[in-house]
Write a protein that binds this DNA or RNA. Sequence first.
DNA 1: TTAACCTTATCAAAGCTGTGTCAAGGTTGG
DNA 2: CCAACCTTGACACAGCTTTGATAAGGTTAA
Lengths: 126, 126
Amino acid sequence: MEVLTIHEAAETTGWTPRMLRYIERIGLIEPARTKSGYRQYGAGDLQRLRTLRELLADHEIGLGDVAFALRLRRDEALEGAVDSWLEAEPQRPEAVSADEWLRWEQEKHARIIAALTTNEPMETAA
Amino acid sequence: MEVLTIHEAAETTGWTPRMLRYIERIGLIEPARTKSGYRQYGAGDLQRLRTLRELLADHEIGLGDVAFALRLRRDEALEGAVDSWLEAEPQRPEAVSADEWLRWEQEKHARIIAALTTNEPMETAA
DNA sequence: TTAACCTTATCAAAGCTGTGTCAAGGTTGG
DNA sequence: CCAACCTTGACACAGCTTTGATAAGGTTAA
């Protein structure tokens, strides 16, 4: 047996067919299709569906959260913007003047751009 | 003028006081407090409130999304788990046997751990 | 060929998010 | 001391997310 239909995949992973379609729609797992459009879940898809369940349960997060993490990873501009915003976090308000903060902000952007163009630490190629 | 009250902060940032409390409750911006509990918004808080508005508008994301990104950044176990799950993404199902996939999975964890303990590319210290 | 699948689309309900408003009470500055 | 703030908590509502059910129709394998 090479690939499973949506009902079979649902059976072996604990999701419902409905949810498998939903998970696909939000971009998390997009199985191959037959010529006529039937979904074909391969071994990798099944494993990912199972680990997805664990991920959600273990950390009390939702599908939307994982979808957002995926979006972050695919949209570098977004990731940069979010990271950049979060970066300023640990500042205690009293500790900085508006001026210092602005300089920090500008340097931060520079740092992030530098990091983006310098680091490519984890190539996905085997 | 050093710090602003919640209504003043709302005024100058375009949020409502209600939303400022909400933003605090989801962990995004936690202003200092006076001894008696009044919120004190400093220059940094105000700047972050303004850039937060931009961030949401520019990228069509919600406060909950930013809150999740913050959670990712604070909970390394969560971040590792999510990244690890997303990592397997580009695989085409037909291309891998279950065996190969499992090995890939295991190596991936090793790679991620290695990366975590090796890279500390962006120190937040000035 | 036909039963048992699959597809997409739609209606629906439960729950969460984001936001307003109000109440009961504490703090503060003139 | 009191008007004008602030606090938390609650009720409420629109809109979105998550999930199920069902319908109308295409595909497939015995």
